[in-house]
C-alpha cells in the first residue's frame, strides 16, 4: 500500500480529488497525504477538501455539520483525551464528554459519565437490577446552535456567532458573568478556571480553518464522530443527512436548532 507510486497518486488526484482524500481518510489508500502536497507548501494536510482556499475572515462556501453516530461509539474516550490535549482543559471541566446509557427491560434509564469519560470506561455498571434492554454510549459536545441561547444572553458581545455558523468566545472581552453557562440547554459551557472566562467546544474552529478535522473527529477510531460540509455532495455528512436514517438532535423543544446531529439516537437520551 505504501508502495503506491507518486505518479499513480497524482493520477488519482486528477480523477477525483475529493474522493481521493476521502479514501485516504477512510484508510483505503493509507498513504501519507504529505507525499502529494509539496513539503513546505502547507503546514498541514488538508483533511477537509477546499478549506485551504478559504482565506477570508469567514468561511464562505461551506456549511458545516457534525454527526455523532452512537451506533459506532465504543466509549474509549479517545475524543476526550484529544480534546483535553488540544485545549489543556482544566480538571473538572469538559468541552466534550461521553455518557454511558443503560436501559433495563423496565425502561429504567441509568446514565453515568465518570470524569466525563476521559479515563475511559473500565468497569461495568453493577447497580442495574433488571436485565438490560439497550445500552450505548453518547458523546456530547457543543451543539453549535443555529439560534444559540448563549449568544442571546451574553451581555457584552463576548460570545457570538460567526457568519459561517460557529459560536465562539472572545476571551478578551468576556467578564465571566456565567449567564451563558446558565442559558446553554446542553451544559456544554463552563468558566475556565485558568483564563477566568467562559469556555466551550468550538468544533476546533482553529483546526477547521486550517483544513484539519476537529481533534475529536481526527482521533475517533471507529469513525463515530463525523464532521463535514453539507454543501459538498460528496461528503459523508451530506450523504448521511439524505438517507432514511434515524437522525435527531438533542432537546429539540428548546428551539435552538442544533447543527450537531445524532445518528441512531434513542428517545431516552437527554
Amino acid at each position: 500500500m505504501d508502495e503506491l507510486k507518486l505518479s499513480e497518486i497524482r493520477e488519482e488526484i486528477q480523477k477525483d480529488r475529493r474522493a481521493f482524500i476521502k479514501n485516504v481518510l477512510g484508510g483505503t489508500i493509507a498513504g501519507s497525504l504529505l507525499m502529494v502536497i509539496p513539503a513546505g507548501a502547507m503546514e498541514f494536510p488538508e483533511q477537509i477538501p477546499g478549506m485551504q482556499d478559504e482565506t477570508g475572515i469567514f468561511i464562505t462556501r461551506k456549511k458545516f455539520a457534525f454527526i455523532v453516530d452512537i451506533t459506532r461509539c465504543i466509549g474509549c474516550g479517545s475524543c476526550c483525551v484529544a480534546d483535553k490535549n488540544e485545549y489543556k482543559v482544566p480538571e473538572g471541566n469538559y468541552r466534550t464528554w461521553v455518557e454511558r446509557y443503560i436501559i433495563d427491560d423496565h425502561d429504567n434509564v441509568f446514565v453515568d459519565a465518570p470524569n466525563g469519560g476521559l479515563d475511559g470506561y473500565t468497569e461495568p455498571r453493577e447497580d442495574v437490577p433488571n436485565p438490560v434492554r439497550d445500552t450505548f454510549f453518547v458523546p456530547k459536545l457543543c451543539n453549535m446552535c443555529e439560534k444559540p441561547s448563549c449568544v442571546q444572553v451574553c451581555p457584552v458581545g463576548a460570545t457570538f456567532q460567526t457568519e459561517d455558523g460557529f459560536v465562539l468566545v472572545d476571551d478578551k472581552r468576556c467578564v465571566a458573568c456565567s449567564y451563558c453557562v446558565q442559558a446553554c440547554p446542553y451544559s456544554v459551557r463552563f468558566i475556565n478556571p485558568v483564563t477566568k472566562t467562559a469556555d466551550k467546544c468550538t468544533w476546533c474552529y482553529h483546526r477547521v480553518r486550517k483544513g484539519l478535522l476537529p481533534a475529536c473527529v481526527n482521533v475517533c477510531p471507529t469513525h463515530a464522530r463525523k464532521f463535514g460540509d453539507l454543501n459538498d455532495k460528496k461528503s459523508e455528512i451530506y450523504k448521511i443527512m439524505r438517507l432514511p436514517h434515524i437522525i435527531s438532535v438533542l432537546k429539540h423543544g428548546m428551539g435552538n436548532k442544533p447543527s450537531l446531529h445524532y445518528l441512531g439516537l434513542r428517545r431516552e437520551v437527554v
Binding site: F160, E163, K172, A215, N218
Partner: peptide, 20 residues
Amino acid sequence: GHYRTGAVEDEINRLVRNQT
C-alpha cells in the same frame, strides 16, 4: 455583528496541538 472581528482571528490563530 455584535462582537470583535479580532476575536475570530484570535481563534483561528490558536495553536494546533493535536496534529495528524
